[in-house]
């Protein structure tokens, strides 16, 4: 059943390239204007300077130390560790784990909110499509499903928000406790282990909440529920009554995401692209990773939907 659900999840996504493409387009369309703005900002900073040669063949930390001193707006979020290798992924993982996603990038809150809204809208379409026999749907139907479920999903997100907020508050409290308990500790390893365990516990809680709300989304769509709170409670009941199955499916998709991250780290290109072809290749590599990430996320929802329906049928 677990593997069947996982495989069904992947299969559904493989047969829904349009859905995948839509999500990816949403991502890149949101990011492109910001990317162009940053490019303009970099170009303005470089002007006609020959430093551009260094940036063409690699990254120039000397220039960056000047640029960061002058940077404003989006430019302030441009950091070498966010543009080289696995750095961008580690940076976001770090911000996610410590709840600093918005603290770190206040200027990007509006963009993130719009993207999140778009994601919620599209998610309605995706889940609606998965719920339909055969799992696919025409563009027209997809858009109709987007409209049908988006407000319910937004309501559900609002229901989940206090829980996530509570977990991050708990995280802050927990890490403060670790810090204060280790005030007189003279060794790093025990404090590191305590910090790591606290962070893993918080991450586990976050994932548990998301898993519950994944099923809530599925219930909201498959059972045409209107009450977000009711769907959330149903999701909780389902997870509580099928702990092994739900966590196994979630875990397998989580493992795939982790493997993707490792693969990205291992394969991520260097910094020496000097031609537009090279630049585009790196861009394509990154987009491929993002597509794979979106694919895995949507597959997990499809897989969980399959598991839920199978359980309900029984």
């Amino acid at each position: 059943m677990i593997y069947r659900s996982v495989l069904r999840g992947f299969a559904l996504m493989i047969t829904s390239p349009g859905v995948l493409l839509t999500f990816w387009l949403a991502s890149i369309l949101m990011a492109l204007p910001a990317g162009f703005l940053l490019s303009e900002s970099l170009q303005a900073d470089l002007g006609s300077s020959q430093i551009q040669e260094n940036l063409r063949s690699g990254f120039d930390m000397d220039w960056y130390s000047e640029f960061s001193h002058r940077a404003e707006g989006l430019g302030e979020t441009f950091r070498p560790d966010r543009v080289v290798g696995i750095g961008p992924l580690l940076d976001n993982l770090e911000s996610w784990s410590n709840g600093n996603l918005f603290a770190n990038h206040r200027g990007l809150v509006a963009l993130a909110a719009i993207h999140a809204l778009a994601w919620a809208v599209l998610l309605g379409g995706a889940l609606g499509s998965f719920a339909r026999p055969g799992g696919s749907s025409s563009a027209e139907n997809f858009l109709a499903l987007c409209g049908r479920y988006c407000f319910r999903l937004v309501r559900l997100a609002l229901v989940s928000a206090p829980l996530y907020y509570g977990v991050y508050r708990l995280s802050g409290w927990l890490l403060e406790r670790v810090a204060s308990m280790s005030r007189d500790a003279t060794r790093e390893i025990p404090i590191f282990v305590a910090t790591l365990l606290a962070t893993l516990a918080i991450a586990a809680l976050l994932h548990l909440i998301r898993m519950v709300f994944d099923y809530a989304k599925i219930i909201l769509v498959t059972e045409e529920r209107r009450s977000a709170l009711g769907a959330a409670l149903s999701g909780l009941r389902f997870v509580a009554s099928h702990p092994v199955k739900t966590s196994s499916i979630y875990g397998i998709f989580g493992l795939v995401s982790l493997l993707l991250l490792v693969a990205f780290g291992a394969l991520s290109p260097g910094v020496g692209q000097e031609t537009i072809g090279g630049v585009l290749a790196v861009l394509a590599f990154g987009q491929l990773y993002l597509i794979a990430k979106i694919f895995t996320r949507l597959s997990s929802l499809a897989g969980q939907m399959e598991a839920y329906r199978w359980s309900e049928r029984r």
Partner: peptide
């Protein structure tokens, strides 16, 4: 474009 990947 690399920064855009981080943003995405």
């Amino acid at each position: 474009s690399r920064w855009m990947f981080w943003l995405q």
